[in-house]
Design a protein around this nucleic acid. Structure first.
Lengths: 216, 216
DNA sequence: TAGATTGTTAATCGATTAACAATC
DNA sequence: TAGATTGTTAATCGATTAACAATC
């Protein structure tokens, strides 16, 4: 059972860099680039060339020595590997500013997620349409999950209802939650939670600013 | 010059966890907790107790064996260490949904940053007031930076103007940019940039969901 | 051929985890 | 005293970087 441990797991830092490559490559493709090498990508994104080679190798793509990678092929492999070419349907809970930002966001460019509908409990938001996404009452959440077979939930509520809404989501068979609130959610082990904490990023920024001030 | 290399640098993962502790501790404090131990914190946030001890030790706090840390003192040390108790003034550029979310956000709880004003170029946003923050025209940016001596900029514009606005910010002597757009900014070495990429988080979520599907 | 690049394996670096002494 | 905890040092683990062979 535990025998076949051969499959080397992808490092999480790699997973986080792959969409950055993808984003850059799409831009380069629009500028007419056909072939692109790891050192070029590394130079643009200020990374180590070896690291780019290694990261890209996880997608299974084969490059050509002296030439690099075909940009279309590379984009395809990245999208395939990240699952960005599949339709990853999601429901959003909490149609405030942050939620609206995400809804507007995906209208322009694919985030790898497709927000099929948004849910809220505030009467004046329900019935609204942000981007192409309708805002429905949270009461309809369970029914809609069943109907559209959605397994990803995006949580953008105020913090004080985050835990409650997350529980409601999983009661309706949501399997993975992207948590953009500052709340730390207590949920069953089998639920996948991805926390995107704004304040962690602020902390890093402030520390680096402080360090630079000291040096000067 | 290079001699005193004794000061062990704080690991970046530690910096990112510290505000998570702080947030949890503030909640616990409101519930009347006076003393709290590392194993308790670790249990709540699903972390290793040793790691919590080590992380907290960077702030310089001294705990008491068998008792743990005084929660008020610990909060104080964390805020001090992270610089959250200082007034870190910031200007926000791009008063769309995401920008508004951040403005509203800080009204409720301190993010360690104080947004003094927001800037935009769209006529119908200028003059608005989100939370307690006024939206001004980008033309006034330089003057306001000088007047209020702000060194942190928050970038929440659409992607296609992100580079341009970032350059404008640093031309006006902004030293650090918190970049919440998907754009990869090309800026001088001495500028501190903190990228908060939404799609990196989505990528991790999708990969973990995929893995869990395979296992079942 | 020379030089640039991929791709793999080894070495290094850094963060986490384990071990353990000190303390109350 | 026994047990729980801090705090430090050592061991382990994982990611990055370096080295190098293969290829065009």
């Amino acid at each position: 059972m535990q025998k076949d441990k051969k499959i080397k797991p992808v490092p999480e830092p790699t997973i986080k860099r792959l969409p950055v490559y993808l984003h850059y490559l799409n831009k380069a493709r629009l500028e007419g680039v056909i072939n692109i090498s790891a050192p070029t990508i590394a130079g643009e994104l200020k990374l180590d060339p070896t690291q780019v080679v290694k990261d890209l190798s996880f997608t299974g793509i084969k490059g050509r020595t002296k030439i690099g990678y075909n940009i279309y092929e590379l984009i395809h492999y990245l999208e395939e590997y990240l699952g960005f070419n599949k339709t990853n349907n999601a429901f959003l809970v909490g149609a405030g500013n942050l939620g609206s930002a995400l809804m507007a966001y995906q209208a322009g460019q694919s985030l790898g997620l497709k927000i099929l509908a948004a849910f809220d409990i505030s009467a004046d938001r329900i019935g609204e349409k942000t981007g192409q996404v309708n805002v429905l009452h949270m009461n309809n959440f369970g029914e809609m999950v069943k109907r559209l077979n959605v397994s990803i939930g995006i949580l953008t509520t105020p913090e004080h209802v985050a835990q409650e809404m997350a529980e409601k989501m999983i009661a309706c068979r949501i399997k993975a939650i992207w948590n953009l609130t500052p709340a730390y959610l207590k949920l069953p082990e089998n639920i996948i939670v991805q926390n995107t904490s704004m304040y962690s990023n602020v902390a890093v920024l402030l520390k680096r600013l402080e360090e630079s001030d000291v040096v000067i």
